[in-house]
Nucleic acid binder design. Sequence first.
DNA 1: ATCACCTGTGTAAACGTTTACACATATTCT
DNA 2: AGAATATGTGTAAACGTTTACACAGGTGAT
Lengths: 315, 315
Amino acid sequence: MVTIKDLAKEVGVSVATVSRALTGSGYASPDVRHRVLEAAERLDYKPNEVARALNTSRSNVVGVLVPDITNPYFPKVIRGIEDEAIRNDHRVIIGNTDHDVDKESKYLEIFRQNNCAGIISATWSVGRTAYSDSRPLILLDRVAEDFPSIEADNLKGGRLQAMHLIEQGADKVLVIKGHEEYSSFNDRSVGTIETLETHGIEYETLKYMHLERLFVDGNSDLLTKFNGIICPNDVTAYKVLNGLRALDIAVPDAVKVIGYDNLDFSAYVHPSLTTIGQPIYELGRNAFRMLMDLAAGKPAPSQVLDVALVRRQST
Amino acid sequence: MVTIKDLAKEVGVSVATVSRALTGSGYASPDVRHRVLEAAERLDYKPNEVARALNTSRSNVVGVLVPDITNPYFPKVIRGIEDEAIRNDHRVIIGNTDHDVDKESKYLEIFRQNNCAGIISATWSVGRTAYSDSRPLILLDRVAEDFPSIEADNLKGGRLQAMHLIEQGADKVLVIKGHEEYSSFNDRSVGTIETLETHGIEYETLKYMHLERLFVDGNSDLLTKFNGIICPNDVTAYKVLNGLRALDIAVPDAVKVIGYDNLDFSAYVHPSLTTIGQPIYELGRNAFRMLMDLAAGKPAPSQVLDVALVRRQST
DNA sequence: ATCACCTGTGTAAACGTTTACACATATTCT
DNA sequence: AGAATATGTGTAAACGTTTACACAGGTGAT
C-alpha cells in the first residue's frame, strides 16, 4: 500500500507538508500542492482511514441501530442514510438490536470503540439509557427528551387514518395498536383515537401482539362487529387482510382496512392497501444530514416530516 | 476514555504486559492476568478497535456489497451475515452498488482504506474486476473463477420450478428471465429450460425488463396463450399476479404462476405464491463463516445450499 | 533599519494498540 | 554445578496519519 511517506519521498517534501497539501489545512504553496496532488493521482494514493481515525479520534463511520433490518421499513431508511453518507464520504455500520437493551448498549460501546462519527438510532431504549461519553446521536422515528430526533408526523398520520375511514362510512372501528415502547406508534393511536372520539365513532383497541386471537375459528362474529380496521403498519395490515380472506369477510365491502407506511408491497396485495405514506427514504437521508450538523457543532433542530394518505382498494 | 495505559498504571505493570494479558498472546502470569482482568472490568476498559486495526492492519469490520438493500432479498442475507459477525466480534459495513461498476470499485477501495477483514459481495462485477491487493473475498449468490463462493442450488431450483408446473398440468409456459449478468438467474433458467425441453413442453422466454409489455391493454390474448408462468424471483411474480388480475385472468385456474425466493411476503399475496424456498439467512451466515476461514488462512471451499419447492395457491 | 507579520516548510509528538527483542528469574536436564 | 530451557516482564518501535511548534525567508509598515 502506498502511504503518505511514499508520497512525501516521491515529491521530495516532508509528510507534514503532504498532509497539509492533501487536507487543505494549514499552508501549502500552490507549487507543492500541485506536485502532491499529481503524485497522489499517479501513485494511486488513498489515505488510510484507520490511521486518520486514530489520530483525530473521529472516524467517518456512522453507526445505525435498527430493531431488525428484515422489517421492510428499515432497508429504505438505511438506503437513505447510506446514500447521503457516501455522498459525504462516510460509511455505515448497521446493528440489529431486536428490541434488546443489552444488544443496544453493546453496539453503542462498539461504535465508541470504533471512534464512530455518530449514531443514528431507530431503537427505543437508546435515548433513555443514560449513556456517558456517547457520540452525537440522532433518534429516528423515536423521540426522547434532550436528543435531536427526526420523525414523520405520526399524530397527523393517525388522524388521517381515522378521518379516511370515517369518510368511507365506517362507524364501528377496530384500532390495532403497535409496539407500546415506540413513540411513533403511540402518537399514531393518539391521533386516531382523538379523531374517532371527536366524531363520536364507536371503537375498540387491540394490541398487535394479540392479533392472532382475532382470526381463530369461531371469531368471525367478533370481527363482523367492525366495519373498519386501522392498522399500526402495513405488515400488520397484510396479516389482517389475510385473516379476513380466510374468514370470507369481504374487503372493502364488509370491512375497510387501512395500513401505515406505504411499503412497496402494499400496491401488490389484494385488495391493494390504502395506507399512510411516509417519506421513509428522506427520514434516513435527513437523519444523516442532521448528524453531520451535530458533529460539526452546528445546531440540529428536530424535524417532523409530512405524511399523506394513499388511497387504494382496501377502503 | 480509559486506555491501556490507564490500565497499566492501575495494575502497576507495563502496557505490553496488559496487552498480553488481555489478548492471551505471549506469556502472562496468572496473578497479573487476574489483576489485569479485574481492573479492566472495574475501570470498564474497552480496547480501541481503531488502534488495534491500525497496528495489525486488519480491522474486525467486514464489507458487504449488495446491489440494493431495498430489494427484500438482501436484508435477510445481511441479517445472516450480521448475526454471525457479531457473534464473532465483527461489524458489518454495507454498500449499495446499484449494479454500478464504479460504485463497486469505490467501495472496494473504501474497504481497503479501512483495513477491512474481508468482503462479502453479492454484486456481479466484483469477481471479474481484476482487483489488486484486495481483501479476502466471498462471492454470495454469484460465481466467478478463482473466488470462493456460496450460492443456493439455482440449477435445481430452476428444474423444480419447471417440474412443478408440468406436474400441475401446464404445457404452454412463459419463462421470464432475470438479470443476465447474474449467474444465479442464468442457472435457474438453464435448469428450467432443460427440464421443459426434456418433457417436450412448449415455452417462450421473456426478459424481465420487458415485463410491462405483457400487461398493456389488448395483450390478454398474448397472455392467454400460456397456462404457466415461471418467474425469476418473487417480486417479479407479484407484478405478474397483479397484471393478471387486472386483465381478469384467473390464477391458478387459467394460468399457474411460480416465483423464486420465498420472501415472507409471498404468503400474503393473493393467491399466495408457490415458489422456491432458498435458505437466504443461511447464505449470509455461512458466507461470513467462509470469510473467517479464508482470513485465517484456512481453506474455504465453495458451498451450494439446497432449495425446496414451497407449494401455495398460485399453482 | 527595525519590527511585526504572513507564508511555507520541517521536526517530532501524538492517537492506542501490538509485538519483536532484550533481559531476568525460575525450572529442568545432564 | 553448569547448561539449557521455560516463563514472565519491560523497552521501544511500529502501524499511517494529523498537528503543535519551531524556524526561515519574504513583505510591508514605521
